[in-house]
Design a protein around this nucleic acid. Structure first.
Lengths: 217, 217
DNA sequence: GTCTATAGTGCGATAGAC
DNA sequence: GTCTATCGCACTATAGAC
């Protein structure tokens, strides 16, 4: 754990960062090894000292894409402590996942963008990781429903996918000029949990202004 | 208008359908002309009688992707008549757009998936169409807010992009086994307008079951 | 570990017959 | 209009020097 990273490992990480960026920008087939190498500051041939093939490289990017989002989300949810209401855990997970997409580099967005384009073998090997993260979200949502904190009647799989869509798509349009990641996260949480519509009573005031501006904005 | 399509035009349309499908499945660079030709039932060289280049082909697919979603959405909103409340117009637009994504072939989802990967020149030429459709949505959302039918405080650009994300992403996960397009559309509308959360009163009953099951399910 | 050089392959595009 | 044949290029991957 406390071992300082060797030169080889540091280069390997630079390559992975470069690959995540280029795969995310150009898609799986559009990303050229020469572009990835240039972004990492080496020649194309040198990539093969660190990775067996283009496929092995993309596979590691995809694995890290899930791992980073999962780690960030789980650790922030667990930091709430065991007594937190399920909907508060869900709210925290939403903030963590979209925060990873917006702020934490290109791994998560590379995964979202290219997983449907990589060779079938690579998809299969990534499937277990995806399942585990999906199960985690399923549990978060189901526990909120079982606690009576969600309106009844939703198909929770559909809900989960719509949520992932709103979050993962943010990689396509977000620019820092649009506001802090935290502000975007508050919009998401406010929209999907409380809804855009003013409550029927007409007293818009009573429902509170929608997204409370994030402290860190 | 009433002119029957020539053989050439029918082949051209078969090629476009095939291209929309293959571009949507494999991404811009992953789509091979030989696959598109095979899907259309012709040889690769024959494509060049109908289109000048691979770029010209993808450009037409992208143009149609916007056009079809725009036409479907606008016509359903206008069918409501001039007196419809703005939030009802927005609700209808949401149903129409996601319905196009889920049911109406591959053009809309091809646009969503590959617009970020095509050469910059192609992106630029598609930009005007995108702007027009985006403006249309901006107006729908802004009118609902001005009518006091939305909770105050949202950045409407962020809202629009989160909505597009939830809708466009559906192409990635939707299968007919998940339910009819209409059922998915009701989940979307219910979630983003009324929210997932049960109202604070605790009388979950009063808020109504979430997505009313679509008639056409 | 990283370089240069190159072998091998697959794809977009064109030419010309039918 | 569609075919077959082919040119030329760009890219992955390997070999061997340093």
């Amino acid at each position: 754990m406390a071992v300082p990273p060797s030169k080889s490992e540091r280069t390997r990480l630079r390559i992975l960062d470069a690959a995540a960026k280029v795969f995310s920008e150009r898609g799986y087939s559009g990303a050229r090894l020469v572009d990835i190498a240039a972004e990492a500051g080496i020649q194309t041939g040198s990539l093969y000292y660190h990775f067996d093939s283009r496929e092995a490289l993309v596979e590691e990017v995809l694995r890290l894409g899930i791992e980073r989002a999962f780690d960030a989300t789980r650790s922030r949810v667990e930091a709430l402590g065991p007594g937190a209401p399920p909907i508060e855990r869900l709210r925290t997970a939403l903030r963590a996942h979209i925060g990873t997409i917006l702020a934490k580099g290109d791994y998560a967005s590379a995964h979202a963008r290219i997983i449907g384009q990589v060779p079938e073998e690579v998809q299969k090997r990534n499937y277990a990781d995806q399942q585990a993260y999906g199960e985690y979200w399923s549990t978060l949502i189901a526990e909120a429903e079982e606690a009576g904190e969600l309106r009844p009647g939703f198909d929770l799989y559909v809900v989960r996918m719509l949520l992932f869509g709103a979050m993962n798509w943010a990689a396509e349009w977000y620019r820092p000029s649009r506001g802090s990641p935290e502000l975007i996260a508050e919009h998401l949480v406010s929209m999907v949990l409380d809804g855009l519509a003013a409550p029927p009573g007409g007293a818009a005031e009573a429902s509170g202004g929608a997204p409370r501006r994030a402290e860190l904005a």
